[in-house]
Design a protein around this nucleic acid. Structure first.
Lengths: 171, 171
DNA sequence: CCGCGAAGTTGCGAAATCCGCAGACTATGA
DNA sequence: TCATAGTCTGCGGATTTCGCAACTTCGCGG
């Protein structure tokens, strides 16, 4: 069967090459490990090792490091609607002044599940998860717009989640 | 220590109440299990059982059912930039005709990682994950706009991912 | 009132998995 | 050349998973 390793063992280990943002780049083996765990977050280390051509212990160390470094996290994901959060929205934000500081402020809010800096007619896109309309209204009009530097916002209330995937690389 | 159960045991089991969309609603105990797995997708069943006030076997059964039903999935999540996908974008789409069929068409594309129907100045919001600029350009201008019913699109290229969480309920 | 099904609990043993550790191997830099 | 840091492998022992069986509880209908 597929006993050959995914990558040349002599290749450099993850972390050797850094992108400008300081995020460590992954080598082929770690990438393969991530893909395995994207298919099944509970897959045993030995099975992963067999798939990527590494020993069980080595896989364990790599996974641990990837988790420690924050490169990946192994979690349960759900459709928030199923878990009792009835209102979600994507909010486009326009900023005057330092965009990053505003992004940090928004990221600090527990209701902001997703914060990304963008190019285009919005400076930031923020995904909000709330329990009901009142909660959503409060977050958008009271909290987000209160952040210094926020010039304007535009909301897109979620009607229906059609797709949600976590399998990049697996294609 | 905290030996009391999270919810009244006499409460109805998950699946008893269905929302209009057919998605089963979760009871408090399953919700607590999901929260445990949102903190750590590999947490052992026994530990979860202790936390939510259930036996190891019961937790095992519930988790298996939640996975089978597709209510949750346990996976590794990463910042795509770290995994070699250099270009991402959120795309707002305006549709003429049946929105849902367009959403389905977009959801069928492997590059569309996230598809949601929204209220507001866009009918759909789609998150795209690509390897490079050429790929992104192709997906947006060639593939998405080719879908029947797509009237127009507006793109927001990702500059930096600031936050990405999966811990609803844990707050 | 009794039977029945769904869920949960306890208990158990075998198999699989996890985890820590010692030893070997390989670059890299002083 | 030697020391060091980073990985990988192999290997026990502890832990967890997994399937299974028997018994209890609870709610529902006949």
């Amino acid at each position: 069967m597929h006993s050959e390793a995914v990558a040349s063992r002599s290749a450099d280990q993850k972390g050797s090459r850094e992108s400008r943002s300081g995020t460590p780049q992954l080598d082929a083996v770690s990438l393969a490990i991530v893909e395995q765990l994207q298919e099944d977050g509970r897959r045993p280390y030995a099975a992963i090792g067999k798939a990527v051509g590494l020993s069980e212990a080595a896989v364990r160390q790599r996974v641990q490091k990837l988790l420690d470094q924050g490169v990946m996290q192994i979690v349960a994901v759900t459709d928030p609607l199923t878990v009792g959060f009835r209102r979600q929205a994507m909010v486009g934000v326009n900023v005057e002044g330092d965009v990053e500081s505003v992004a940090d402020a928004l990221a600090a809010m527990s209701e902001c599940e997703y914060v990304v800096m963008t190019a285009g007619s919005f400076d930031l896109m923020v995904e909000i998860v709330c329990e009901d309309d009142d909660h959503l209204l409060d977050v958008i009009n009271r909290r987000i717009r209160a952040v210094p530097g926020v010039r304007s916002t535009e909301s897109f209330v979620y009607l229906k989640l059609k797709k949600q995937t976590y399998m990049w690389g697996t294609r």
